[in-house]
Design a protein around this nucleic acid. Structure first.
Lengths: 212, 212
DNA sequence: TAGATTGTTAATCGATTAACAATC
DNA sequence: TAGATTGTTAATCGATTAACAATC
């Protein structure tokens, strides 16, 4: 791995390659060309080759890429092979949906804890895991070696939850609350803002009507 | 509105401005500068001004932007003021969470229908709406003038659902299934791929460890 | 008028696309 | 060897940043 100036756009395409390679594995495909991979994703083969060579040489000229090997390499790059332990904080509708999200496991993430502050919710079992009290957050995060916290609480509580996660020594935060959060640079933060995608859709529908 | 070569990055920042302006309204702020707005979002004031001027002149030199007016203008640009009717297809955990997602309404979207194929789920009431049978999709979409379909079904059924939505005359699809979908160019498609954000987080956590 | 802040042009930076040599 | 496909360099395209004139 060279790892120098990798663009975010490249990083964001890697999970798409990873998933497509997994599907190719399931189909019993051993070797895949950048062209075939590109066709399956609507990405140009040049783009794929460029993305991959930022991390090393994974292909065989005149042949293509070995599916198993490339998938393993991309998993290594993305850190999926670390099998991070994750926790979901806020077991409302969204938190419950995330806790039940099957794709986590298929990407190598282990959901190991759920948290809430509501006495009605604490103790419930969701996705085979008992919901814990937020007051036990730090202890459980340390005990279970949890690296990633998923914030699914209402916006007004999100920063406080982030602060507690940071205090508990979390490595990364996946934030679904529509707020700008402040965390130390040592903690990675990814915001998942659902209103952006829906607004983009609204915009394009509106301008499609305009231009007709 | 000039509307020429607006970048997707610009479009994706508009909902952030919109939300921040709404919060500013709630705080009773009448006028806001690009600098203040930028501080609240970690976006440079130059970027904000550049984004806005691709659509027109909304500010007053030496003064700033009128919060109410700018919010209304951005709502117009994004088409939020059209108050699109939307439907969620697939009322599993994720579909239910999306149906209950409060931020829809605050952005002007009206959830008016839910669909599933499972007899156990059809007839249930989620977020004050009765779940309909998929076989009634076309009829209900026409009757209720639904413009946006939210796909929250398992990956293997997503394309078939998209086809039905297209057939029913939908204008836009917000797809949560992790598959590449094919729809006619006249139908807008936005993919919401949760594995991308989580993978990005994993990548940055992994490389943070590497570089320490 | 002086201070503040927008709107806009120019400069820089970064990402994608195209072309092709290397090589399996 | 001929055909196929990668890896890499160069060219293009697009987005962000910087600078500043316009003006409230």
């Amino acid at each position: 791995m060279k790892e120098q100036n990798i663009s975010r756009a490249t990083i964001d395409r890697l999970p798409l390659y990873f998933r497509t390679l997994r599907l190719a594995q399931d189909e019993g495909i051993d070797i895949i060309s950048s062209e075939t991979l590109g066709n399956r994703l609507n990405i140009t083969p040049e783009q794929i080759r460029k993305d991959l060579t930022s991390f090393g040489q994974f292909g065989k000229k005149g042949v293509g890429y070995y599916v198993n090997e490339l998938k393993r390499c991309i998993g290594d790059i993305l850190g999926l092979n670390n099998h991070w332990n994750i926790a979901v904080i806020g077991i409302g509708h969204l938190g419950e949906a995330l806790a039940n999200y099957q794709n986590f496991a298929s990407m190598g993430f282990n959901l190991v804890a759920l948290f809430d502050t509501d006495k009605e919710i604490i103790g419930r079992v969701v996705s085979h895991i008992r919901v814990s009290d937020m007051t036990d957050l730090k202890q459980i995060i340390e005990e279970k070696n949890i690296s990633i916290g998923v914030i699914a609480v209402p916006a007004q509580f999100a920063q406080a939850v982030a602060d507690q996660l940071v205090e508990a020594g979390i490595r990364g935060i996946w934030n679904f609350a529509p707020v700008k959060m402040d965390v130390p640079a040592s903690v990675q933060l990814v915001n998942e803002d659902l209103s952006v995608g829906l607004s983009r859709l609204s915009y394009f529908i509106s301008s499609a009507r305009d231009s007709q």
